[in-house]
Design a protein around this nucleic acid. Structure first.
Lengths: 347, 347
DNA sequence: CGATTTTCCGTTAACGATAACATTTTAGCA
DNA sequence: TGCTAAAATGTTATCGTTAACGGAAAATCG
């Protein structure tokens, strides 16, 4: 009766078996594994040899049970098929690995509706040392979390969410991004600057919008609500929004679009309506996804370093885990940058 | 000396404290938590009340220690800022949550160079119940894993990798995708069909190429190696590849591009060289990323349901975990589908 | 050379939970 | 009412590891 390759009768090698094979106590094995000083050189060598030959790997969960820390982080994220969130996750992973932490991942199926209490309990059941909340702040979706905070037994950090007192937060300066984008359009001599925003329930979308308003105001332009259209981040919505916008306000000669996907849709509409970009209509996006440089025309946009956001967020959280200060929760804010390409430069 | 909100002196509530508060043994608490029958109704109710009021959450790691299963899966992935891999991950998460599993995530920084042994040990140290290897097969990068397999104490499943005997694998039928794409171009009356492939070290790229070859051969066309250019999946490489291809072979009137990003780059080159798409040059991609429909012109492409790939992969793995059959490793193969848009249809 | 320190290693208990078994209480029935 | 079976609960051992302590052997020293 031949067994297949995947014969899982093989069991985990435990510290006891190693101890038995080496003829010493488990404590000595533990000491060798953890590189402690009080082991005789030749004993250490012998034990190491046994460990190697048996392929012993200490159990992190047994260890975490007694030491009270698991060296793992609970990550809550959303929308990883978008470039930004996926980069954030990548950044988190980089820092985590570098600092010796593993990740327990939860991807929310819906960023607005979830059971924060349940979610956090789930992660705590695995004894994560901290929680990194990397899902966007939308509508009132933060309320449920806030309620849990007082009961939470580990540090938590928030990414891409509105900073709150005594809470660790790292964000991209979306407001600044909105201002940079709008300023650039103004500097190009554009007179009527529309806005295609993401859902206003998203905090980040509102911040970008705010930047647009502020910059217009700073240049003495008045802001008319009919210059705004509300998309849902998808290219399709960008297409529809620009169509509506140009119908209401044919004089529009520039749009700030709140992400690159919607900008792509807008470019398509412009083409269909016979508006030349950038001559008749300047288009600027937000994100700088890798494809943006290959759009037609190449998209001017606001670059945000989302990978760095993930890195600093994880770094902050780990710092908080390893030396908990009473209130060391300085909010971090990363500046975005203008990337000029063809879609806003005529002539 | 005021302490901040994040005062983590709060500790985990243990089963002992619950037992103490309820005036029963820990075993009774355990029985209630696990919904076992042999608890008197009123005791159960009482205990449940205490649990609720104390906010008790049983420790999954203590449980996993004694029961030998953690209800967690180890996921190894790569390149999640690409649409496909991120969707796979999403699909895995969906199935995992539905079946009560949590995810330990590892994102490889490099898909070719890694220490498989170290990686697997790391995951096993957390007692994952199974491993889902969702990183692509590139060059000889599978060798290291194969070596570890005999020592591995948990089931492992592979996604997007070449099926091997007695190993659980789920893939998209890339070869079929290549054939569908090429067939479509032939049916459109194209005579000289080029190929822009991904790195041939990638198994998936080779399969797509194979489909292209087979379909050409099936129609009696001969395959000339000078009709092939080698990209790196990026839009920039697509741009360069098409330029080279048209230099070598100006008669080319269609290209099958092995992913949508490179196709985007190819569209740009065509525009710059004054080749009209689709009239002078038909372009077909692979993946069907959400933006493809908004390219200019809208991209005909091969859709692959990567989320479903993640779902079935996770499902298979969990099945294997929960009722280990000696050799129930039927490779799964998901068919892709042709999505016709503007970039291949002239007139 | 005996006393003291240092080095090395072992023993016991504990982390938080459950399995397996043991015991008590209650119910069922003649 | 007494006896047995069933139901409800408690006890002890265990998972794999480390903390805390203790003890023996070797090294140091006057």
């Amino acid at each position: 009766m031949e067994r297949s390759v995947r014969d899982s009768s093989r069991k985990r090698v435990t510290i006891k078996e190693v101890a038995g094979a080496a003829g010493v106590s488990t404590q000595t094995i533990s000491r060798v594994v953890n590189g402690r000083a009080d082991v005789a050189p030749h004993t250490r060598q012998h034990v190491q040899q046994i460990i190697e030959s048996l392929g012993y790997q200490p159990s992190k969960i047994a260890r975490s049970l007694i030491q009270g820390q698991s060296h793992s982080l609970g990550i809550v994220t959303f929308g990883i098929s978008y470039y930004g969130p996926s980069q954030v996750l990548q950044g988190i992973q980089e820092t985590a690995v570098a600092q010796g932490y593993s990740l327990m991942l939860t991807i929310l199926p819906d960023a607005e509706i979830y059971n924060a209490r349940q979610l956090m309990r789930e992660m705590l059941a695995y004894h994560v040392d901290g929680i990194l909340w990397a899902a966007p702040e939308i509508g009132q979706n933060r309320d449920g979390i806030q309620q849990e905070l007082p009961h939470l037994s580990v540090p938590i950090a928030f990414l891409s969410a509105q900073p709150r007192p005594h809470q660790m937060t790292a964000v991209i300066d979306n407001r600044l991004g909105g201002r940079l984008a709008t300023r650039h359009l103004i500097e190009q001599g554009r007179q009527h600057i529309g806005l295609i925003t993401g859902p206003i329930s998203w905090w980040e979308a509102r911040q970008r919008e705010l930047g647009w308003r502020e910059e217009l105001a700073a240049h003495g332009r008045d802001v008319d609500e009919s210059f705004i259209a509300f998309g849902d981040w998808s290219a399709g919505s960008g297409e529809r929004c620009l169509r509506m916008l140009l119908e209401w306000r044919p004089e529009i000669d520039a749009v700030f679009v709140s992400n690159d996907q919607m900008a792509l849709g807008a470019l398509k509409t412009a083409r269909q309506l016979g508006r030349r970009v950038p001559e008749d209509l300047a288009v600027i996006g937000f994100d700088d996804i890798p494809e943006a440089a290959y759009f037609y025309p190449a998209l001017t946009t606001i670059r945000q370093d989302t990978a760095e956001l993930g890195r600093v967020g994880a770094r902050q959280l780990i710092t908080m885990i390893e030396n908990p200060e009473p209130n060391g929760a300085e909010p971090l804010c990363l500046p975005p940058a203008l990337v000029v390409r063809e879609s806003t430069i005529s002539g």
